[in-house]
């Protein structure tokens, strides 16, 4: 841990082109207005933590970024590609954006190895040998190389989530989306997953994390986004966000969770 603590947060240059850019994104579920004029730019290498009360639209927002949800107004562009109904665009963006879910969503009928090689083979068209090597490398990185031939049901929650992260990383994404990756885990397992995420962050991966792990936010986040009622209420660097929140809603929220 001491070694990690010594590491530097990557410096973010805000002058260039953002890798994710959202402009006045609006979305409705039927008549229910979930996202209201959400605008946010994320630079390459940034770790942005999104927090906010339940039902505030955090998941919906990051799911819009890889088109698991469709927004109705506004623009989202990822790595210079604008999200539209063009399926080719969608496919291209999904190739660049990895996602980790709260419920892991591993494929229960496939082994860990098959879970991770599947998309490499059918999306990236890597030969089997290469994809298996890549898989073992990633499993090493998330610390569970010995589980390669087990089925997800035979792993603990923390191990499953680490496999899910490896599965997303296997596509060599430029951006990783995390939707509450630790909230379905027991305290003992949260740390093992956070360690993997920290290492990713220090490695310079662009990350968008919905999480309430404020320790994680403090340590690596370049910015913290607070959402409430479908809109962004406050965006700030973590030191400022935690020590000197501006908005009353943020203060109330922080007072409840800290």
């Amino acid at each position: 841990m001491t070694e990690k603590a010594k590491r530097e947060k990557p410096k973010i240059d805000h002058s260039g082109q953002p890798i994710i850019s959202c402009r006045a994104v609006n979305k409705w579920f039927g008549d229910f207005h979930v996202l209201k004029d959400v605008s946010l730019d994320v630079m390459e290498g940034e770790v942005v933590v999104i927090c906010g009360p339940s039902g505030s639209g955090k998941s919906t927002f990051i799911r819009c970024i890889n088109r698991l949800e469709e927004h109705q107004e506004g623009q989202i562009s990822v790595d210079g590609i604008e999200l539209s109904n063009d399926t080719r665009n969608i496919a291209e963006i999904r190739r660049e954006v990895g996602m980790v879910f709260q419920q892991f969503n591993l494929f229960p009928h496939l082994t860990v190895m098959q879970n991770i090689t599947l998309a490499q083979r059918y999306v990236r068209h890597r030969p089997r040998k290469e994809s298996e090597e890549r898989t073992m490398e990633l499993l090493d990185r998330v610390g569970i190389p010995e589980q390669a031939n087990k089925y997800p049901g035979q792993l603990s929650g923390g191990q499953q989530q680490r496999v899910a992260i490896a599965r997303a990383l296997a596509m060599d994404p430029k951006i990783m989306l995390f939707d509450e990756p630790t909230s379905a885990l027991d305290p003992e397992m949260i740390k093992e997953v956070l360690d993997v995420m920290l290492e990713l962050a220090y490695g310079g991966m662009t990350m968008l994390c919905v999480t309430h792990e404020m320790g994680f936010a403090r340590e690596v986040a370049s910015r913290v986004v607070f959402m409430d009622g479908g809109r962004i209420v406050e965006v700030a660097e973590p030191e400022e966000f935690f020590s000197d929140p501006k908005h009353d809603r943020t203060k109330l929220f922080l007072s409840q969770i800290l």
Binding site: N66, L68, A91, R94, R95, V97, G98, M99, F101, Q103, N105, L106, F107, L118, A119, Y122, V123, A164, R167, A168, M171, L177
Partner: peptide, 18 residues
């Protein structure tokens, strides 16, 4: 089959046929 399965597969970029 839970919705999460298709979502995870979609997020990986797999086509609908796959």
């Amino acid at each position: 089959v839970p919705k999460g399965q298709t979502e995870a597969a979609r997020a990986l970029g797999l086509s609908e046929v796959y």
